[in-house]
Amino acid sequence: MKRVHVAAAVIRDNSGKILIARRADNQHQGGLWEFPGGKVEADESVTTALGRELHEELGIVVDVARPLIKVQHDYPDKQVLLDVWEVSAFTGEPHGAEGQPLEWVAPRDLLNYDFPAANQPIVAAARLPAQYLITPDDLETPALLRGIQKAIAGGIKLIQLRAPNGYDPKYRDLAVDAAGLCAGKAQLMIKGPFEWLGDFPSAGWHITSAQLRKYAAAGRPLSASRWLAASCHNAEELALAEQMGVDFVTLSPVQPTLTHPGALPLGWEQASTLIEGFSKPVFLLGGVGPAQVDKAWAAGAQGVAGIRAFWPDSSV
């Protein structure tokens, strides 16, 4: 069965809302909501197809777009490759040129709509930022909390509370304080045993590669309404993350790092190859920072993750 190549768009307006369209009842996956787009013809580039489809479907002209995610999905009757781009500027007023209902939706509200199964990673990518802050270790609690507060004030929306020394009571107390700082402003990702899941209902969970290897076969340990992420370093771990049903991963190390000086870096080319075969958002980690976000997008990643490059106190 030939895989159908589809160009699709996450279109944002000036307020950050995202445009979605309802599929006609007589279409494949009819009645469900989708991100606008359509089939890439044999003689077309993806960007040409995207521009053509959005003009035909919505009456708009794309001004600014960049790669967001590629998703391969196999339905019982159809195999698709969704080549998704984020459109941040366009000309014209979008309207359902083919009679399809449209809605502008806040990213957090996308979970309230029914999408085809192939669209679930796109929903995740549309809700995630391009930068993922990981807190440094060896900081006293007051300094760590001040740094988190400063990072949030600077626009960071996704924060992992790193636990390099195991899951001790001190980390739990810190997590309580960090959750309070992040409430309503940023998404906190905690690391810890699954026994703690019920104690931090607003937090997502970022599992280690060791946890991934131990628990992947048991499936997803928390509800779809909470974020689940995993640390991955190779194709085997990415496959386990897929099996577990995580929402996104970090892939590391891309380049040599001070944190793990002995780890063999993947390099940009290998990182891009690994992302190509993985249909979930990926943050590249290890020797990267905000300056590499465009390069990460070009490699197929959601964005970049890091400690030193993102922490507001440069002395760390």
Rank of each mutant, 00 (worst) to 15 (best):
I11T: 07
Q187C: 01
F90Q: 11
K157T: 04
P261L: 08
N165E: 13
H28C: 11
G31H: 08
A235L: 06
P164V: 07
K170L: 12
I159C: 03
E98Y: 10
Q149K: 13
V6K: 10
N165F: 15
L82E: 10
G166L: 11
P101N: 08
L133M: 12
L161G: 12
W196P: 01
V316P: 04
V62M: 10
V84T: 09
P67H: 10
R226A: 03
I60Y: 04
S279D: 03
V62I: 11
F283T: 02
A8G: 09
D13G: 02
E236H: 13
Q187R: 05
K185F: 07
C232F: 01
A210C: 04
N234T: 05
E236G: 10
D63N: 15
A9C: 06
R66I: 04
L133Y: 06
D43I: 02
G37Q: 03
V123S: 00
K280Y: 09
D294V: 12
T135R: 02
A178Y: 00
A65N: 10
L19Q: 07
A183W: 01
G51W: 10
E195Q: 15
L266F: 04
A151S: 08
L128F: 08
S252K: 12
P76F: 01
K39R: 13
W311E: 05
F115L: 06
M1T: 11
H260A: 05
P169T: 13
S202N: 11
L133C: 06
H73T: 02
G300N: 07
N119Q: 13
A175E: 09
G277F: 00
E44S: 02
H95P: 07
A224S: 14
G30W: 01
L110E: 02
V46W: 14
P261W: 07
L81E: 12
G306M: 01
V316E: 04
T250W: 06
G262T: 13
A151R: 11
L32G: 12
Q270T: 12
I69A: 07
